[in-house]
Design a protein around this nucleic acid. Structure first.
Lengths: 151, 151
DNA sequence: GAAGGTTATGTTATAACATAACAGATAAGG
DNA sequence: CCTTATCTGTTATGTTATAACATAACCTTC
């Protein structure tokens, strides 16, 4: 069983537990996300989807599947680059309170790390003080140059 | 001297110090940003720009000015909503290391607060450990419901 | 103050990203 | 089954952003 199959199985179980349906289309898109190391745009995914699964597929097919996957926490949307990637922490089940993405502007790579402890509690306190009710897990997208490209 | 004029003057001084040119076009766009409480899309700004300054203006005019203002730290781009707003902290000169935006999905309003102490140092440590060189001030865009709309 | 580099703007066109709307199919619960 | 929800297909269009090239303004330095 490949790495991808393992993650897919884990994702399906997650959906079952949530009463959400991991349909073939959604699994196909998830599979495409998992097949790539880096983040991809919706239209890149669409091209691959057409190559691989359905040659006349249209944008809504991809966007719907992506919306679903993001909602389920199986994928992330990077709004600063309009890209999508599989969540790096699907198999480990820690519910994180926030995620930091280090986006290398040179090679396009991403490193994903959970938002650390004090940052989370500070944020929660700010929200509390201001009476702001959070509705989505916050994502911090940090742009720069990764260690490899800085050499 | 109005609030806007004071901020514009402050912005101009900032540019002089940086050796950057605050041209008429850029000042006009800055003025439009300052005239609104909330964040605005580039095309909303374009419409206002056409109304007010140049009826045949094209998108690049706005985008170039916005890019400049963002680079100078005079404005922010909210990538999760594709909107722009004037920086709330132009007149006070604390160089912040990051900014948190609380975006109300109901009323569209924004609250801007500096990223707090421990969060910053944790982030810096993460970057240090991974050898990642940051290139832009990080913005955290948190979606939810503001105190007012939660009533 | 003219020459030549650099930066900013004007202008046309188009690329890239995303969703509305409605019809038809498929799944899940009674 | 039959109904209701949800999901998918399809067409069309809306929204956001930039490429590319021409022109203008600005800024040195000779």
């Amino acid at each position: 069983m490949s790495r991808i199959d393992r993650i897919l199985a884990s994702a399906e179980q997650h959906c079952r537990e949530q009463g959400a349906r991991m349909t073939p289309r959604r699994r196909q898109v998830m599979n495409l996300l998992l097949a790539q190391a880096g983040p991809q745009s919706a239209y890149q995914l669409l091209d691959q989807f057409k190559d691989r699964y359905q040659s006349n597929a249209q944008p809504p097919t991809i966007y719907r599947a992506l919306d679903f996957l993001v909602q389920q926490g199986l994928a992330h949307r990077l709004s600063s680059t309009n890209q999508y990637l599989a969540c790096d922490h699907i198999t480990c089940r820690h519910g994180h309170k926030g995620t930091v993405f280090l986006l290398c502007d040179e090679c396009g790579g991403v490193q994903e790390t959970p938002l650390a402890g004090a940052a989370v509690s500070e944020l929660e306190q700010t929200l509390d003080t201001l009476g702001f009710e959070i509705q989505q897990e916050p994502l911090l997208e940090v742009h720069g140059r990764c260690a490899n490209c800085a050499l």
